[in-house]
Amino acid sequence: MQASKRKETLAAYTFLAPGFVLFALVVLYPIARAFQISLYHWSIVPGTTSQYIGLGNYTHALHDPIFWRALENTGAYMVFTVPAQIVLGMTVAVLLDARMPARGLYRTLYYLPVVTSWVVVSLLFRYMFITDGGLINFVLHDKLHLVGHNIEWLSHRWSALAVISILGIWKGIGWSMVIFLAALQTVPRELKEAAAVDGARAWARFRAVSLPAILPVIAFVTVMLVIGGFNVFISVFLITNGGPLDETQVLLTYMYRQAFSFLDFGYGSSLSFTLTLIVFALSIAQLRLFRRPKDAA
């Protein structure tokens, strides 16, 4: 018995080893390494030495106005995109959660933006929001006459962030929808159908029947979207590249520029390590927060 136990353990480690070694090398070690680098005035050029400066890079960040603006912009991106993706994704999921023709087709079409590459959709949105000759200004100005002149979308901080956020929402609705839809389908159908027929009280029923059942799923989606929000990079990088005037810099674009345009690997690492800590703290806090009502019930 003892011997077979040992054999089992050995087998387990054999199964685990190749993958875990690679994972440790490519993911875990860099996490630790990011922290180490962030404590140095890191010198990447061959033949020069790095200088240990303790938390110097972190205090530098605290006094760097662009860091704070990047943090603000990242926060704004989340405020714009996370609730919108949840509400719109949920709305579409609820609408699709019924017997109706071509349901699968609708689901597929809503999901298309999710599987499309960020590079492609970012360039596409930049093109659509071009000031003179872009599709959006054409619709708003020439067709609907909602605005008096062509809006210079990408020339100003908030309108540029709006474009980036709209892209984030457009690309993300399908993802939350699919998950909500799957969750809703675990709720007994009779209860929901009663709610659907009884129009006036549909919302009340939804709150009473479906919502509590899928609350953990909402928590999961929220956590993932918040992490995704911190991860916003490609859209900003390709649409504004932080401009004009660093106005639309988010944490990751600023980190990338520090490292790969200014060779300040130490400062860049301190930014990404800070971000990693924020992501951890938020995910854990959110999970706790959303679990409480369920535990109490």
Binding site: L16, F20, F23, A24, L25, V26, V27, L28, Y29, P30, I31, R33, A34, I37, I44, I227, F230, N231, F233, L252, M255, Y256, A259, F265, G268, S269, S272, F273, L275, T276, V279, F280, S283
Partner: peptide, 24 residues
């Protein structure tokens, strides 16, 4: 412990590791 480490890897967006990964 190993599974916990795996979950950490699940949470950290890859982009945040780009500097140490580049050096690696």
């Amino acid at each position: 412990i190993l599974f916990g480490l795996l979950l950490i890897g699940l949470m950290v967006p890859t982009m945040m590791l780009i500097i140490p990964q580049f050096i690696l």
